[in-house]
């Protein structure tokens, strides 16, 4: 099992466009729904793109807004103005 990275977000209105973007931008990601939250797993690398989320909500989305809905994560994180990346070995 090569390192799975994962992000857990609240399952609410604010997080939904973020969840949708992640699933769209990471074709091998897999969403596990539980009451109140969703855990998204992906082999090796997972990216959250500000551009994708912004397009869905019709305004500029700052990657730091993730702080409002994130529940947990697995992997090493890197963040800049355009994206958040979770991976192993970084």
């Amino acid at each position: 099992m090569a390192g799975i990275v994962s992000i857990t977000l609240q399952n609410n209105d604010e997080a939904r466009p973020v969840i949708e973007s992640i699933l769209h931008d990471n074709p091998s990601a897999n969403a596990n729904y539980m009451p109140g939250a969703v855990k998204i797993d992906c082999p090796e690398r997972l990216v959250v793109k500000a551009e994708s989320v912004s397009a869905r909500i019709g305004r500029d989305w700052d990657p730091q807004e993730i702080h409002l809905t994130i529940v947990s994560m697995g992997g090493s994180l890197d963040e800049d103005d355009e994206e958040l990346v979770l991976s192993w070995g970084a």
């Binding site: 609240q10 109140g36 939250a37 993730i66 702080h67 409002l68 809905t69 994130i70 529940v71 947990s72 994560m73 994180l77």
Partner: peptide, 11 residues
Amino acid sequence: FSAQSDEARHM
């Protein structure tokens, strides 16, 4: 969940 949203930073 509000507390947990800080947790990613703590992790």
